[in-house]
Nucleic acid binder design. Sequence first.
DNA 1: ATGGGGGCCTGCCGGC
DNA 2: TGCCGGCAGGCCCCCA
Length: 283
Amino acid sequence: MPELPEVETVRRGLEPVMTDQTITTATVNRPDLRWPFPPRMAERLTGASVLALRRRSKYILADLSTGESLLIHLGMSGRILISGAMQGDFYHDHPAPAKHDHVVLTLGNGARITFNDARRFGAMDLLETALGDAHPLLANIGPEPFGNSFNETYLTERLKGRKTAIKSALLDQRIVAGLGNIYVCEVLYRAGLHPARPAGKLAKATVAGLVPLIREVLAEAIEAGGSSLRDYRQADGELGYFQHRFRTYGREDEPCVTPGCTASIARIVQSGRSSFYCPACQR
DNA sequence: ATGGGGGCCTGCCGGC
DNA sequence: TGCCGGCAGGCCCCCA
């Protein structure tokens, strides 16, 4: 669920609350998420100030005054909630909940940052900031979709000779960072591409067209997330989840939204994941 | 090298 | 009403 736009929305929501604040308390309620937490994580966080919040692919990185960065991945069901501090015009003091609150940070400004993750596919780690992308979880990730190194030439090169379906290729984080099942479906719909088409056999112009379409789909979702950032202040403090209209994802048997198209959205399973597409528009 | 599948984990939903 | 199987999916890891 949390793909690049949702993670970016969470980052933007955390940024004004956490930047320049000191972590006064770190409560770690279990030893691990998907992997064990680093040794003495709570101690290493306590007293540190947050210098900046960055995002790389679907990871959030909080750079700390200690020279370490806190790496956060939301996995499938990870959520971050803000409570206990002024946020814009609204004050939140909802009871810090409950089940699956695995890590809670209290900041100098009184804000409480709660990481909740029911399925525990998420992750947290500490790394030396200076190591950059050398962290094993970051080392093999491909270019950011909005970066200059993600372009037509690059994508053509990476897809060349690949027999795998274009759906699987775009899902591959080594090829391009940040796409997940939902947005890949949306990109392929806009590209008019059947998800099972072999990645290596696409026309040059088709590959070229994917680059701006990927950016367009992600940018629109980030935009939608921005409006949710204004809304969450009035709700429960949860960051990053927002209403977004998808054209194919989750719409099996519903009518295709392309004007004049009378087909219904179909679903196939590829590599164990659902692909939604219009059989008439996507070839 | 590449592609395919398993496994992690819990909540939810449909069927009986 | 309660139980249970299936599903959701990001990403590592193993195998062919």
